[in-house]
């Protein structure tokens, strides 16, 4: 990776880190923390869906695993919250690898892969809802004990910085993937799996690495969710709402780009808040906006917001070709 790759990430991270010094409103901080948690999970989706072209409709499976693993470890085994965070991330990678192994080995792709991930997430949800080990339907309540050692902070800004650090780390990870040999292979598999195979790419191995990474990052976001709200149940952790959010954000922001998930999550949640301000009495108005934006994004801005901006910039420069990473699904 070159300095040019890193500078935008560094600048953004520093600017975002300075925000709590300027904005003291808890409402805004709380909004940002939640949005960043979603964008972290969305970044996980993006690794598999954006770079690898494998659209998962069940990333809740990873999000929920992260949330449940850390909660169960803390509550049932007295494990420290930070260790729980690490183990939850590892568990996400494992679940990702297993789901990937089962479905990629059977050659599932496209709609079939989307459906199988959806079904896995549902199975997890039903199990978590029924088993007493996971607290059943009553869910799990992480004990409120505000100490940094417990990953609970008195000041919302601290948690914000923590989530921001993780988001920055995954931005770097994504940038690395983009520039690495692994990333090139992943994109090759996305564009044309058969051709990639013919060129000697071990497509199964590449996809498995991608889904394990993806699962780990999304599990981390689930873990942070549990740590921030201190309460989870099966419908929160494994519900389809999170699968949908994690997929919407990168697609709105720019699928297969480094910043897409963050841009998308901020846009969606921002729009949702605005919609609620203007038409708060109409139930579900923010979701109507979400759905509408999704359709419009697919129809008119196939590279998401970032792709759109890029195109506008290029048009301004009078360029014809574009060197963006906009996804083309040709050949799938």
């Amino acid at each position: 990776m070159t300095a040019r790759d890193l500078i935008p990430i560094a600048v953004l991270a520093v600017l975002a880190a300075l925000l709590p010094l300027v904005v003291t409103s808890s409402t805004v901080l709380n909004f940002l923390v939640f949005t960043l948690i979603v964008s972290l999970g969305a970044q996980g989706w993006n690794i598999l869906g954006g770079f690898g072209g494998q659209f998962s409709f069940g990333h809740a499976a990873f999000f929920g695993t992260g949330a449940y693993v850390t909660a169960i470890l803390q509550l049932r085994y007295g494990v420290n919250a930070w260790a729980g965070l690490a183990l939850a991330t590892a568990a996400g990678a494992l679940v990702g690898w297993v789901i990937g192994f089962l479905s990629f080995r059977s050659g599932l792709r496209g709609s079939y892969f989307a459906l199988v991930t959806l079904a896995f997430a549902e199975v997890f949800r039903i199990l978590a809802n029924a088993a007493s080990f996971t607290g059943g339907a009553a869910g799990l309540l992480i004990k409120l004990d505000v100490r940094p050692a417990n990953l609970q902070f008195d000041d919302r800004a601290v948690f914000y910085w923590l989530v921001l650090a993780f988001v920055t780390a995954t931005l770097l990870l994504t940038r690395w993937i983009q520039r690495s040999r692994f990333g090139a292979q992943l994109v090759a598999v996305r564009e044309n799996e058969d051709a990639a195979k013919a060129l000697g790419v071990d497509s199964l191995k590449v996809k498995l690495r991608a889904i394990a990474l993806s699962g780990a990052v999304t599990a981390l976001s689930g873990c942070l969710y549990a740590q921030y709200f201190l309460y989870i149940d099966a419908n929160i952790a494994y519900g389809s709402w999170i699968s949908v959010e994690l997929l919407l954000a990168p697609i709105i922001g720019g699928v297969g780009t480094v910043f897409g998930p963050v841009v998308g999550a901020l846009t969606l949640h921002g729009l949702g808040e605005v919609a609620k301000q203007f038409a708060g009495r109409i139930p579900g108005i923010d979701l109507i906006v979400f759905g509408g934006v999704l359709v419009l994004a697919v129809a008119f801005a196939r590279g998401g917001i970032l792709g759109l901006l890029e195109r506008l910039r290029d048009r301004g420069r009078g360029m014809v070709t574009r060197g963006t990473k906009e996804v083309s699904h040709a050949g799938r």
Binding site: S25, S26, T27, L29, N30, F31, F34, Y225, F229, Y231, I236, W241, K276, G280, P283, D286
Partner: peptide, 21 residues
């Protein structure tokens, strides 16, 4: 000061923050 908890805990939390503000 009305807040819509949108049937989810995180939306409830967000509204509490707004009410606090």
């Amino acid at each position: 000061v009305f807040g819509d908890a949108r049937s989810t805990p995180e939306a409830g939390t967000q509204e509490v923050e707004r009410m606090q503000a």
